[in-house]
């Protein structure tokens, strides 16, 4: 099987998978190519194996995990504060991913949740996302037997978190109306990875030019199956629909005995 391709320096050639097993530097004047080793390994294999182990661990403790993603400032923490005020917060764990500071973790602990903070600049090289090994580390610091749910509040970033399976059962994202209608088209990977899109800050719509119908059309083009919930963490509008969605996921997940949303 040859593969013809062009390199940046303009040279072109065909690779073959033919290998030359040779044992020294003497090629008797033959111009042999370099030895090639076929590998064919997914770069995320190790992460995905750890993600599967995280899910097994959550399943064993009958805990449902939701990975919550968004750009910075979309309102993940505010929505979780509102959510915890309406649920039994003491039975909810939060894995809080932030590059620096415990500001959000402190807010959610004050709301009654059990918080495990991951500062990604603290030993993880300032990562722009959470990955499965980091979440495994955070799970170690939660008493899963005392919990029904875990929210993974990912690092605020519309790109990278969507690439990494952290071992949650479900993925949700927040998109706020101050961010622009075109975001689903510009950042399709996160919008495609999310089962539910929370359209936050709808209380601001009277003051903005944001075209909600256009946003939802754009979203439908990249992820027609997404559930859309319009809400305002500030006024509490739409919160009931979000709580209903959470409750339905808990039921569905236990019935199906959990499946990865990344599968």
């Amino acid at each position: 099987m040859g593969r013809f391709h062009r390199h940046e320096d303009g040279t072109e050639h065909t690779h073959t998978d033919h290998e030359h097993p040779h044992d020294g530097g003497d090629h008797s004047g033959y111009a042999t190519g370099p030895e090639r080793i076929a590998v064919l390994e997914r770069i995320f294999d190790e992460n995905d194996r750890q993600a599967a182990r995280n899910r097994q661990r959550l399943d064993a403790a009958h805990v449902v995990a939701i990975n919550l993603m968004s750009s910075p400032g979309a309102g993940k923490t505010a929505i979780l504060e509102r959510t915890f005020a309406r649920l039994d917060a003491g039975r909810i764990g939060v894995i809080e991913g932030d590059i620096e500071t415990s500001i959000d973790a402190d807010r959610l602990a004050a709301a009654g949740a059990r918080v495990s903070l991951l500062n990604t600049a603290n030993g993880f090289g300032g990562e722009c996302h959470l990955d499965a090994p980091m979440v495994a580390n955070a799970l170690d610091r939660l008493d899963l037997d005392g919990l029904d749910m875990v929210f993974v509040e990912n690092v605020g970033n519309l790109v990278c978190p969507a690439e990494f399976d952290v071992g949650a059962h479900h993925s949700a994202m927040v998109a706020s109306v101050t961010e622009g209608e075109e975001k689903p088209l510009k950042y399709p990977v996160m919008f495609r990875a999310s089962e539910v899109v929370l359209v936050n800050k709808v209380d601001l719509l009277p003051y903005l030019d944001f075209d909600l119908a256009l946003f939802e059309r754009n979203l439908a083009q990249v992820n027609p199956a997404a559930t859309v919930i319009r809400l305002s963490a500030r006024t509490g509008e739409g919160l009931d629909a979000w709580l209903d969605w959470i409750r339905s996921r808990i039921t569905v997940t236990s019935e199906l005995n959990t499946r990865s949303t990344f599968a």
Partner: peptide
């Protein structure tokens, strides 16, 4: 895709 398909070894 996000695959590592092959390695070319350096000629020593």
């Amino acid at each position: 895709e996000l695959l590592l398909t092959a390695l070319d070894l350096a000629e020593v």
